[in-house]
Amino acid sequence: MVEIEKLSDVCKLLGDKMRLTILSLLKERELCVYEIVELMQTSQPNVSQHMRKLKDGGLVKEAKKGQWVFYSLNINDKPYLNELFEHLPSQKEKVDAISCEQLDCCD
């Protein structure tokens, strides 16, 4: 029963368009919170709220580098997500077009 509950929780997280888009962005590479804010065209508190839910759900992990927080996917222990991630539209062009240097953050 525990596995069904975990899977149900993951499905709830994936059911939100913003969170699914964030995961699609992170499929390309690790991103700092400000890169995600810029790519999603939303506020930092809004992104942080979604990132907290994704982290609590075990879908992303964070790494602090100085005062900056970087996020990356954490789905290696969830092989059932592999096919879903193969079907997510590529965000490579968007992610490649932005950087911390360009945003003047994370120095």
Rank of each mutant, 00 (worst) to 15 (best):
L88I: 11
F85L: 10
E5R: 13
K17R: 15
R19H: 07
F70Q: 07
S99A: 04
N46Y: 13
K17W: 12
F85D: 00
D107M: 11
I75Q: 00
N76C: 10
L31H: 02
L23K: 00
S8G: 12
P89M: 12
R29T: 07
F70G: 01
K61R: 12
S90N: 03
D56K: 11
C100V: 15
P79E: 13
S72H: 03
P45N: 05
S8P: 03
V33I: 08
C100K: 11
C100E: 05
L88H: 02
P89W: 05
G66V: 05
I98G: 02
D96G: 14
L59A: 03
L59R: 00
S72I: 01
G57W: 03
D96H: 14
E30F: 00
R29Q: 06
V37P: 08
V2S: 11
S90G: 05
C106G: 04
V33T: 07
E83T: 11
S43D: 09
K53N: 14
L7M: 11
L39M: 07
A97H: 11
D56H: 03
Q41K: 15
M51P: 00
I4G: 10
V33N: 03
I4Y: 08
P79M: 06
R29Y: 03
E30P: 00
I4L: 14
D107C: 07
D77I: 10
K17G: 09
C11T: 13
V37M: 13
V60W: 00
